[in-house]
């Protein structure tokens, strides 16, 4: 089993709901707090999920894209083997990559090893923190079924995010990846991330060009 989150870039508007709901849940969750520095001056802080905004192409064909980026729960997670203490580990039962704060010495080697820059260092506590795939939600049997999913998936206003088991070919996530040509980030670095993204799928105009040509020369 490999749990994951798929984000459909054809639907992500970059609203950062998932970024904030992540912080909101986790700061008071089992792996919190998720601290901030100089919160009311020149601020900076820890986020386990960050939305990256990007632009491509040239006007007027400009492309604007938003990319939510959290732990990819890699199959071959490079952050795990480098960790000297075993604090970083990948769960065998569901593939979730976690940090055991009690064993972490705060050496940050895992942060160098992670290609995606999703691990964050809490200086005060001296440990590395990151997305847990909301393990404390998905495994909490006291929660209602709809709450037993990652906070960032639950909050997403466009339902761009889907959570599930990528190893189960019948799962929604596996189906989406297969049918919509889901892709990974930086595959060349060999981490084989479980998190996939679905590409843009523009809908073309229903008006054909030849008709337009004749109208334009004839009438307009």
């Amino acid at each position: 089993m490999q749990l994951t989150i798929i984000t459909d870039l054809n639907k992500c508007v970059g609203c950062k709901s998932c970024q904030v709901s992540c912080k909101e849940h986790n700061t008071g969750g089992s792996f919190g707090p998720v601290p901030d520095q100089d919160p009311y001056a020149d601020p900076d802080g820890m986020w386990w999920n960050r939305i990256v905004g990007m632009e491509g192409g040239e006007y007027p064909e400009a492309d604007v894209l938003y990319l939510p980026k959290a732990c990819m729960h890699c199959y071959d997670a490079p952050c795990v083997p480098v960790c000297p203490t075993g604090a970083s580990f990948k769960r065998e039962d569901n593939g979730v990559v976690l940090v055991d704060y009690d064993s972490c010495i705060g050496c940050q080697l895992c942060m160098w090893a992670c290609p995606y820059g999703v691990r964050e260092f809490d200086e005060h506590q001296g440990v590395v923190k990151k997305c847990t795939l909301c393990i404390d939600r998905i495994e909490d049997e006291t929660l209602a079924p709809e709450d037993r999913q990652p906070a960032c998936v639950q909050s997403c206003p466009t339902h761009a995010r889907t959570y599930g088991d990528l190893d189960d070919p019948d799962s929604e996530v596996a189906r989406l990846v297969a049918e919509q040509r889901g892709f990974q980030l930086l595959p060349e670095l060999g981490a084989n991330p479980a998190v996939h993204y679905l590409p843009r799928r523009p809908v073309a105009s229903a008006v054909d060009d030849s008709k337009l040509d004749s109208l334009l020369t004839g009438r307009y």
């Binding site: 795990v80 083997p81 480098v82 960790c83 000297p84 203490t85 075993g86 604090a87 009690d102 064993s103 972490c104 010495i105 705060g106 050496c107 080697l109 260092f121 200086e123 506590q125 001296g126 440990v127």
Partner: peptide
């Protein structure tokens, strides 16, 4: 550089894979 010396005792756990160990 070690930010939690309390966990230093675990540092050799990953000899098999970790260059840091």
């Amino acid at each position: 550089h070690m930010h939690r010396r309390a966990a230093a005792k675990f540092i050799l756990r990953r000899l098999k894979s970790s260059w840091l160990s």
